[in-house]
Amino acid sequence: MHSITLQADNRAEVAAALAQQHLIVACLCAAWCGTCASYRNAFEELARRHPEKYFLWVDIEDHADLVGDLDVENFPTLLIQQHETVAFFGTMVPDPNVAHRLIETIAGTDEAELQRLAASTAERRQWQQECNLRRLVGA
């Protein structure tokens, strides 16, 4: 599988996919960002390595209405979500091996532990309120 790029004409399709029981891995980037452009191939490779997960590429400027309130400090920013639990939201070193290990770790963590971790700090609790892609896209 490859990643899906959020477009104005595929939001309903993306919302339907996000509503499924896949681990969601979203990359939040901007078209003008050189680091994002170079990371795109690595993100596609991650999607091929993890075909059972849903990979979504989101240009934060094209979809400011969707992600405008998210605090994207640098690029690339990954958002990883399992069901309703946001497991990770932050800048990622543009190294696909680091992202692969993070994805594997989250995928191997049971739901109860992910929920415990999600409530463990103020920052993570804030992720649950502000970064849930299912809610942002309307899934």
Results as ranks from 00 to 15, higher is better:
R125G: 01
D65N: 10
A64V: 12
K53M: 15
L70D: 02
R116N: 11
T77R: 02
V58H: 03
D95E: 13
E61L: 12
L79Y: 02
H83I: 06
D59A: 05
T105K: 15
N41Y: 13
V72T: 00
T105F: 14
R40C: 05
W57G: 01
V98I: 14
C36F: 05
Y39C: 06
R49G: 08
A99Q: 03
P94E: 06
E52W: 00
R101L: 14
T85F: 01
T85D: 00
E84Q: 15
T121K: 09
V93G: 00
V72S: 01
L102V: 14
M92C: 11
A122G: 13
A122T: 14
Q126C: 00
F75Q: 05
L114Q: 10
A107H: 04
F88N: 02
Q81Y: 09
I60S: 03
A42P: 04
R49Y: 04
F75R: 02
R124I: 03
L79Q: 06
V67I: 08
V93L: 14
V72M: 01
G108Q: 08
V67E: 00
V67L: 03
A47M: 03
E45C: 07
W127D: 01
H63C: 06
A119S: 13
P94Q: 09
I80E: 02
R101S: 13
G90I: 06
Y39R: 03
N97A: 11
F55M: 13
A107I: 04
M92D: 05
T121G: 08
C36E: 02
F43C: 00
R124N: 09
T121I: 11
P96H: 11
G90H: 08
Y54F: 15
E61F: 11
E73I: 07
P51T: 03
I80D: 02
A87G: 08
R40P: 04
F55T: 03
E113Y: 07
E123L: 15
E52I: 04
S120Q: 13
P96T: 08
I80A: 05
D65A: 14
E111C: 13
E44M: 10
T77I: 00
G108N: 12
R40Q: 12
V72Q: 02
S120L: 10
Q115E: 14
S120K: 10
D71F: 03
A107L: 07
H83S: 13
S38E: 11
F88P: 02
K53D: 15
V67M: 01
L46S: 00
C36A: 07
K53V: 01
D69P: 04
G90L: 06
V58I: 15
R40L: 12
R125T: 04
R125Y: 06
F43V: 05
D69E: 14
E45P: 02
D95R: 12
E52C: 05
T77F: 01
E52A: 09
A87Y: 01
A119K: 12
L114F: 07
E61Y: 08
R48S: 11
I80V: 14
Q126A: 09
Q82E: 14
E123G: 11
R49Q: 14
A112M: 15
F89P: 02
K53S: 15
E44H: 13
H50Q: 10
A47C: 09
